[in-house]
Write a protein that binds this DNA or RNA. Structure first.
Lengths: 174, 174
DNA sequence: TCGATTTATCTCGACGTCAAGATAAAGGAG
DNA sequence: CTCCTTTATCTTGACGTCGAGATAAATCGA
């Protein structure tokens, strides 16, 4: 019979420090939200490393997967893409420019709205994103290996609750 | 008696799209990790908005709080600061420069290691960070209002499990 | 049909971050 | 003591993102 040693992460130390310095404040929100922020930063680094072997940048992957998920003919408007990736319109224009220059997507005028443009994945783009995505899933599965299946589900459900208000039909990012 | 309507977030839609397009892949890792990433992005926006009323940037807050948590005399080395904030050394140098120019911190040579420098919060810096922190906690508490106390604890514990491997005594960010 | 408003995308300058390398001091082996 | 390695910080240039504003077409009401 061994003791369940309480393993600490950086946020535990951070919260303990605050309790020492500002015992008047209730810092429990940090227990969740600081962990989300910090984990996200670590994930971003892991992603970057994973994509390096596919000669792909994180931002490229984000855009290409959004198009891939759309299904044939793998085509979306820039507006739909920026909503999917949570970046601003200026950023998305820039990204599409570079992806088009790399031959992974093409731009064409929207036949039904002369203000609009449609961005479509090229066959080369489809191939690239499929390879990178399979690899990413492999690596992400490893990161989650510390949690049982049912724990992963519980975690996902809790996160969903926090996310729903943001993903409600209002958000605007122009 | 009402039905528990299954509320969807953007990740549910994303996962459903992948299942349609790539039924051969198990995309369950996204249920957790995509949510972490997306929630983090939303949080960063909320933080930015919160700090705007204190005329403060997110990056300033990150550095100032690290010093504040250290306790009197509110002093840390640049190396300790970059480990606390997960940025690279070049970024930290830049940040310290700007905070010093704003009169919120001062730099002084480390008396015990002539390679080193120590960064100390000024009284003005302490005041600024305390005000912003109290406000941030208020807003973060609202974001978590959708979860019961015990759910927040469960969520924190699950996230800790994922975070521990990253925060182990190895990580290096130079 | 005209004008005002909304929607869709792009342009551009400012800015922060990263990654690699430079500098310099400390620590360890022999 | 000297050399080599490690540690700590800063410098620099490239790059991506943001945010505000410009352009242009679509939509709606009078």
């Amino acid at each position: 019979m061994t003791f369940q040693r309480p393993v600490e992460d950086e946020v535990d130390r951070l919260v303990a420090a605050w309790k020492q310095e500002r015992p008047d404040l209730d810092v429990t929100p940090l227990e969740v939200l600081s962990r989300v922020s910090r984990l996200s930063r670590h994930l971003e680094r892991a992603r970057r490393a994973a994509f390096a072997s596919h000669d792909m940048e994180s931002w490229e992957f984000d855009v290409l997967t959004a198009l891939r998920r759309a299904g044939e003919p793998y085509e979306l408007s820039p507006g739909a893409l920026l909503r999917a990736t949570l970046v601003t319109s200026g950023t998305m224009t820039n990204r599409i420019d570079r992806l088009a220059a790399a031959g992974l997507v093409i731009r064409r005028p929207d036949p039904e709205d002369r203000r609009g443009v449609l961005v479509r994945l090229t066959p080369a783009g489809v191939h690239r994103v499929d390879a990178a995505f399979a690899d990413l899933l492999r690596r992400e599965r490893e990161l989650l290996a510390g949690l049982e299946q049912h724990e992963q589900q519980a975690l996902a459900a809790l996160l969903r609750t926090l996310l729903v208000p943001f993903d409600a039909p209002d958000a605007a990012t122009h």
